[in-house]
Structures are given as structure tokens and as C-alpha cells.
Design a protein around this nucleic acid. Sequence first.
DNA 1: TTTATGTATTGATTCAGATCAATGATCTAG
DNA 2: CTAGATCATTGATCTGAATCAATACATAAA
Lengths: 248, 248
Amino acid sequence: MSGSEFSSQVDISSLKVACKDCNLYQLCLPLGLENDDLERLDSIIKRRRPVKRHAFLYQSGDIMKSIFAVRSGSFKSYTLTDDGTEQITGFSLPGELIGLDAISSGQHISTAKALEMSHVCEIPFEKLEELSNAIPGLQRQLLRIMSKEIAHDQSAILLSKKSAEERLACFIISLVNRYEARGFSAKEINLTMSRVEIASYLGLAVETVSRVFSRFQQDGLMSVNRRSIEINKIDKVHILAGTKPSTN
Amino acid sequence: MSGSEFSSQVDISSLKVACKDCNLYQLCLPLGLENDDLERLDSIIKRRRPVKRHAFLYQSGDIMKSIFAVRSGSFKSYTLTDDGTEQITGFSLPGELIGLDAISSGQHISTAKALEMSHVCEIPFEKLEELSNAIPGLQRQLLRIMSKEIAHDQSAILLSKKSAEERLACFIISLVNRYEARGFSAKEINLTMSRVEIASYLGLAVETVSRVFSRFQQDGLMSVNRRSIEINKIDKVHILAGTKPSTN
DNA sequence: TTTATGTATTGATTCAGATCAATGATCTAG
DNA sequence: CTAGATCATTGATCTGAATCAATACATAAA
């Protein structure tokens, strides 16, 4: 009844979760850390306010002071062409780090925008650098995460050789794998991005994305209703994508 | 006259260069290190034998024990499709690190093959990890290099939205920028990769690459003779590529 | 409810680039 | 030096996806 601690109950409850209690622990930066080390990492992390749908986490050109870990929700990263068109370079899901591309220049080269109401942990980069020097396990995990991002981006480069169907299949498989790793259902996906955004990421026209979704549905691979997708024949999607079932 | 130290003069002379005397110092891992630190890094690096044209540096599936710095020459990195087609994910020039994508899984996910007679420095990864924990400047530089690779790969992702002309222009600009940073002429380029390899990287057919080169030549942007290219109107190439002159 | 307004689907037409095909140039092995 | 292989260029045709265009659906506002 006193009110204040309930006034924004949801936010506070999620904001207060420490790394050790976070269900993303095994995916995120703290993986492998224990006790003291974990708490030291915890102590430099700022739990940020929720990020509203369509709000920026940072914009292209901003000085990079922090990187961010997605706690909940999702983000898109993009740059703009001369004529102002968004060119999406990636989507970020819970447990993933955003902003790693800015370390080298110290400035963000892309813009990160929330696709839905989201929460992030802000990790001041200077402190992270210091700390990962003091904690070998943290350095190790940071390098691994960056390496994983490199590997992921390289597999995205291969998209440009593929047909529209292959591209969309690859995209869906990537989402499924990532959601699975986070303990979400692999069968039902709720897309948080629009067709336009998917098209931009895959280098296709919106209409093509829409058509391919329809074709996938006709062929019984999945049921598609706007942004909710139920996958019926994941093995066939894997075949289309040209990925072995279980690649991450 | 005693012989042995001259028996393979060229190799030895290049193999013996320490980091501090290497002309790639400012591009490579040692950047920012001095004296002791530099020598400690130097001490873990193995100068490898020259890598012959078409020889593998590592193959997909190999355990990742080391990463490599290109000292001279060039490499392509690729994966194979089910039907055995090479899918090139990148080219590596002197001063660049190869194998960073394997840190996360501990296994190489791509194959690296020399495009010409090349030299590399082999950097045992475990030792590098240890050492970069002891030397803050080294950790810093390693993170920067990985971040740069992420940024580079993300710009390559954008290729899939571009036309054939834009793709080839981007490719040429990228080469020019990288060669320039290494002190080579920006006007004359000697491609070390075939048209097939360029096509694979850009997601185009060989014939298209060839045709676009011809068109560039007709339009007076550059003189193209097989693998040697002389760029006449770099600003126009930049416009095509959609990059500001001087982006790196 | 009706009216917007953004988002998604579907159809008709066009076009950039793939594919098929042939020739020429360069390189390598004998 | 020649024969065969590899690599690059150019032309003709075909096709997958872009573009143009219209409609449907959904969410929000009036």
C-alpha cells in the first residue's frame, strides 16, 4: 500500500536482477565467472531503464562509452544510405551484446533501435577493459563473444550468394537456434521485426519476403500469420537453408 | 662463405624480422606496445616457413591452436557448400589477422589458403590469451582488431543489397584503402585473386564481374588488364561504392 | 462506429544478372 | 616450342527477383 515500490513493479523486479540470478547467465558475459569475479563484473554494470519501442540505444556517430547486453526484448542495428534508407546489419536478442563494432574506432558506426519494449544492461567499456584485464575468465569470454559475432557475420556474408528462399530459410533457422539457446520454444516464433526490416537485412524486396513466406506456408513448412510463425517441418527448412540441424 | 646462414637467404631475412623491426608494426597486434612488452609478445610468436601458393594455413574443422598474422602475400578464407563449391568469406592482406572466427568454438570454421607465396607469423592462442592478460595494451589491441573485423564483416553484409557495379566498386575501394594503409600505391593494384574468387566473395557470377570490369574500363574509371588494375578516377569509384573518400 | 495509417499480401510487368555458349589470352608441363 | 589446361572476356538467352500497382488487414485515433 505504501505504493512506491509497487508503482513500477515490473521494471524494478527486472532491473534488480544481478548477473548471478539472471537467466541469461550462460549466454552472456558472466559465463564462467564465479563469486568474487562475478560480483566485480556486476558492480560495474548499470541496469538501465527500460528502452521503449523505437527508442535508440545509440546512434551512428555517437561516442562509444558503453556496450550493451540485451536483457529482454530485441533491437535492430542499421546504417543509413545517402538517400536515407535503413540498411539493417543485424538483430540482437536477449543475452547478446550490442556495440562491439564500435570498439575499434571509439564511435558507433551503426544505430541501435529497440524493436519492442526492451531492457538492457549497460557496460561501461573502459571499466570492462580494466576488469577483463584483472579477470582472465572475463577476457576469455569477451574474446569468445566477439569471435562468435565475427563467425555469425561471416555466415551472413554468404547470404549474398543465395536465393530468396535460401536467405529466408537461413534467417528463420538463425532465429530458431538463438531462441532455442535461450530456452524459448523452437516451434513458435513471434517476429519482432517487420517484413521491411527482414527484407532489408536479407537484401530482398519486401514483396519477395512476403511471397516466400506464403510459399513456405503453401508447402506446409510453416504456418505464417503476419508476425507469428509456427514451424511445422524444421528439417525441410534446414535443408533449404543448407545448414545441418543443430548449427549455432 | 660458411654457407648455412645464406643457404636460404630470402626466407631467413624475412623470418628473422622481429615485431619491432617489422614494417607492419602499426597495423598489427604489437601496435602500442613498447620495449619489454613488445619483446614478450615477440617471444611467443613463431615465424613460420613461407606458405606456398595454394597451400593451406588451416582447414575447416581443424583444432584452432594458433591465429596467424599475414606478413607478406595474401590469403582467401572460404567454406564449402554441399556440392563442393567454394564460398569465399574474405581476403587477408599483410598486417591482418586470420583465424579470429575460430576462437569461440575452438575449431576453424573456414579454410585459409594462400593466394600467392606468403609469409605468416603464427601466434599460439593460449599464450596470446595469457599474455594479453598480463599486458593491458595487448588486450586492448586485440579487442580493437576483432572489433574492426566485426565492422568490416558488417559492411560486407551490406553488399547483398547492392548492384553488381556497387559491389565491385566497394570491393576495389576496400582493397585500395587497405593497401594504402600498408604504404602501397593506391593507384595501381595487382589482384592476387581470380575473377572466380572475386565473384564468389561478392555473390556474383564470374561473367558479371568480368563485364563490370570492362564497363569500368570503358567509362574511364580504371584500366583493367587481367589482374593488374590502374585506377584513374578514384572519386567516381567512391561515388559508385557509396563511400566517403577516406573511409577505412 | 468511421477514418486514418502503417503493414502485409498478391498480381502484372520489367530488368539485372545468371546461365549457356563460344572464343581468346595466359600459363604450365613436357 | 607445342599441347593442354586454366583463366578471362564477350555475346545470346533466360529467369528470379525488383518494381509498379492494387487490395486487404490491423491497429490506433476521432
